[in-house]
């Protein structure tokens, strides 16, 4: 695999200029997770209003794949319903795990991360933000009595 195929410009752009970086004052989901093997770490903040994601941000440090993936995720999730956000996260995970999800088109720019598949040890870097989001969403729903 060539350098350009893996480190696509959109990934490097998000890595150098991460979107939605920082904390949220009002967050329904606030979760710290890390990737002990390589030292990637993030804090994810999600604000949910009327069942929709009204705000999302992150703080963190780590490799370009983990940080770009999270930055792209925050852009995508903003304004989505919980169900759509969960669906998107699962579609992204399916793509990274080598399945060919039917709704891959819904991922948009995130398809740029598909090249990471070729580096199995780094798939978990790309998934760190998404798994953190899904975990946070699950406990939010449990807390608010909604079906998990």
């Amino acid at each position: 695999m060539s350098l350009e195929e893996l480190y696509k410009e959109v990934i490097l752009d998000h890595y150098r200029s991460p979107r939605n970086k920082g904390t949220l004052n009002e967050a329904d989901i606030e979760l710290h997770r890390d990737n002990p093997l390589c030292g990637d770490e993030i804090d994810l903040y999600v604000d949910i209003k009327d069942g929709k994601i009204a705000g999302v941000s992150f703080d963190g440090k780590g490799c370009s794949i983990s940080q770009a993936s999270i930055s792209m995720m925050t852009e995508k999730l903003m304004g989505m319903s919980q169900e759509d956000a969960e669906g998107l996260a699962n579609t992204f995970k399916a793509m990274m795990q080598g399945e060919d999800p039917q709704d891959e088109d819904s991922l948009g720019d995130l398809v740029a991360l598909k090249g990471v598949q070729k580096y199995p040890v780094r798939i978990k870097c790309a998934l760190l933000g998404w798994n953190t989001f899904l975990e946070g969403l699950k406990s939010y729903r449990e807390k608010h009595g909604e079906p998990a």
Binding site: M1, S2, L3, L6, G39, C63, I65
Partner: peptide, 13 residues
């Protein structure tokens, strides 16, 4: 630059 990015880019070379 994270060491894993260094390692992966060197691998592409």
């Amino acid at each position: 630059i994270h060491a894993h990015d260094v390692g992966t880019i060197l691998d592409t070379l």
